[in-house]
Design a protein around this nucleic acid. Sequence first.
DNA 1: TTATAAAACAGTAATAATTACTGTTTTCAT
DNA 2: ATGAAAACAGTAATTATTACTGTTTTATAA
Lengths: 127, 127
Amino acid sequence: MALKYSKQRTVILEFLQGRKDHPTADVVYKNVRQTFPNISLGTVYRNLVLLSDIGEIQRFKIGDGTDHFDYDTSEHVHFVCSKCGRVLDLEMENIDFINEEASKHFNGKIDGHKIYFYGICEDCLDK
Amino acid sequence: MALKYSKQRTVILEFLQGRKDHPTADVVYKNVRQTFPNISLGTVYRNLVLLSDIGEIQRFKIGDGTDHFDYDTSEHVHFVCSKCGRVLDLEMENIDFINEEASKHFNGKIDGHKIYFYGICEDCLDK
DNA sequence: TTATAAAACAGTAATAATTACTGTTTTCAT
DNA sequence: ATGAAAACAGTAATTATTACTGTTTTATAA
């Protein structure tokens, strides 16, 4: 199962690289289709999943029930605007010490946590 | 739209009360059906959603794509076992100060966060 | 009590996101 | 150049959830 080059995969990856919000598969599909009109939704999904499986991109969930994809694979925290739904990156100190905090009264093993913050983004506040 | 009593709702609520894991709608359905064989899945969903809308129970998501329901509506943090998928409550200090931390370099307004911890539960460790 | 309107129900259909399948095309190491 | 592996387009299937429809329950009030 050696990876083989494909124009479609490149286009998907490049699109994702150009976005600082973190689009869903459907958003990727709709946009990529403008420059690549007969790309299939299945191809978009297959590549997004493949790319996140090999660690080229990041796949994550926020409360909206759909998967989001991020070109930036470094550890960072997300913010979700309750008004416009946009997903943004948060610059903040590492808070992994909360894992210790969670371990204190727990007999299992804590490996990590998933977190996102929500509120109103700057753009929506301005309106 | 005054609430009216229904046997089905009572049974669903009682089932949920007796569980300390936090079952999905489907798990509620399958169990309740053993004592109430012709209850419909739609009824289970309708009641779980209604009960969480009026604050009688809590509805939340973990990474598995399905909704979970909790009889305990007090603020508390969840743990998800990566092995058996069970969802447990964590007793830990309130960590809402991380909201301030998240605000520091952010120009929007932070209202809160969603978090869950993951790892291996006690039962799975023992095996 | 009975009448009745609102609410709830069972059962089924619809929707949305995602995954799986199928037969064709593309890639790339020999 | 060629052939197997990988990827593709297009479509079908799956899963969780919501919406719809015609029937039954509940609770108020004559």
